[in-house]
Nucleic acid binder design. Structure first.
Lengths: 298, 298
DNA sequence: CGTCCAGGAT
DNA sequence: ATCCTGGACG
């Protein structure tokens, strides 16, 4: 009836499950673009503070057919729901019909128990209009931190358990100085600080924590963005964080040699945003003090 | 003081817990009838679309005494609450006193921690008037589907996570054709379809999916009824679904050789009910299209 | 602001 | 199947 124009087929259901669970809290919809070279996904959150880009080369798919490019916006919550229904070893087929330009079909096949699950997703938002993602050079960043994603997740977990002071969106202050990276959050009745030192290369050849610093930098982020990236960071062993006081920070997770997922997160401006009050400045001030304290200890 | 007229005693607290949790959402009250041969329970939902019948032979009870028959209507939500308080290994005693014709006493005994819990339930509704349940022959149905209850539950779960379009009661279209059964639901921004093929007997001697079809059939049901039955279907490994465009569908769960729980559910009539609008017809139409599409693929 | 119910994760 | 977390309602 209709010709099949696009049919990437892949086995890693878990991969997309993880991605969708990570994204769907924060991002309502995403722009998907399938092309001969692979998949590119982009989304921006409602407050336009964070932007996520996922790139997955065709080789990442078990089987990838793509006759012509297809660009579409999809609702992420619905997709997450759909993928939750899938078994881990299902074969997934994504199909768009030739003349059917407002719907895409995801099929989950479970050969052994003879079950075929099919979802049609309506296109949403501004289809065909991918976001403009600026390309920054590594050299533009004041500090670049690499660490095991497990470590990053642990830090986020601590911060979010502690940093909820109840009266505003929890934030974290990330500072890099003297080959260490510090995460600071304020809770109801105290503060929490995690300092990660650069690992000695002799100690741990695998999973090192590396800190390249051109200049000290200290930035404030909403914890919710960190948490979302933290979920996504299960996709790889290592995360990379690029920090600059001038540019959006980049939190990146490389997916083998097959692609990456990257969050561009604008730091909060102290006093610049309506919901940053005196308290925010006090935190920043304390933070500075602690910096100085650390230096004294050395 | 009063003679104990009825004293069925059983250990399977979990059994009744499950039944009550399944029923109490949908059915306000149920008619209980204890007789020498066992228990029969019947209930009809407020919109009179679904009817449930539970039959449990005396042998299903650990210990069953019944001097004379007792017929009573009881509030299911209250009973569910009571059973929630019971431990799984409690001994339950149901007692009605001779001259006490408007109350029944449920006692939960936990021998090890010496706790006795007692509930008195007032009779409600039209006591002594069981519902008329028509007896249909299997031969009257256009299609009979048997499948593992786990599979049925999975399908219901999928449908209800996806099929909530927000603006009306979620429904499912169940179709049988060509030795497959298809469940279709529409969500906010897409649709979900599950196709179950008949399992090959060589593949899985246990827990097969069997489809006996005399004629293709496609029916619309409110998801809430399916979900209620889905909960009850934990009582057995296998469920049986009898479908006909003329009769109420029967969803049955056999309880070993000891009884069964059976839902009689009237399908929605397209266009016949006030809350079936154009959309419903569109779904049915799409559904038909998909049917035809499937056929072309064969 | 606290309570209750539903959904998801272990 | 149970427990915990998040969201909705009173």
């Amino acid at each position: 009836m209709f010709a099949t124009m696009l049919e990437p087929r892949l086995v890693q259901t878990t991969f997309f499950k993880n991605v969708l669970e990570a994204l769907s809290d924060l991002f309502i919809e995403a722009h998907f673009e399938f092309s001969r070279t692979g998949l590119e996904l982009q989304a921006i959150d409602t407050s336009r503070v964070a932007l996520v880009a996922l790139v997955l080369r065709a080789e990442a798919f078990n089987h990838y057919l793509c006759d012509r490019g297809l660009s579409m916006g999809l609702n992420l919550a619905d997709m997450a729901k759909a993928f939750r229904c899938a078994n881990n070893d299902d074969i997934i087929t994504i199909k768009a019909e030739e003349d059917w330009t407002d719907t895409v079909t995801f099929t989950f096949e479970s050969p052994e128990d003879g079950e075929i699950l099919e979802f049609d997703f309506d296109f949403v938002g501004s289809n065909g209009v991918p976001l403009e993602i600026p390309e920054y050079q590594e050299s533009e960043y004041q500090a670049i931190v690499r660490m095991p994603s497990a470590k990053f997740m642990r830090i986020c977990k601590k911060l979010s358990s502690f940093g909820d002071s109840g009266d505003r969106d929890p934030v974290v202050i990330i500072s890099v100085y003297k080959e260490r990276v510090r995460s600071f959050a304020r809770g109801k009745t105290g503060t929490s600080t995690t300092v990660c030192l650069q690992t000695q290369t002799v100690d741990k050849p695998k999973e090192p924590t590396l800190i390249e610093m051109k200049e000290e930098v200290s930035l404030i982020f909403d914890l919710k963005y960190m948490n979302s990236f933290s979920k996504a960071s299960t996709l790889s062993d290592q995360v990379t964080i690029n920090l600059s006081s001038e540019l959006p920070a980049v939190f990146e997770c490389k997916i083998a040699e097959l692609g990456y997922i990257r969050y561009y997160i604008s730091p909060r401006k102290e006093g610049g945003m309506q919901n940053l009050g005196d308290e925010m400045q006090r935190i920043a001030k304390e933070d500075k003090m602690q910096n100085e304290g650390d230096e004294m200890q050395n």
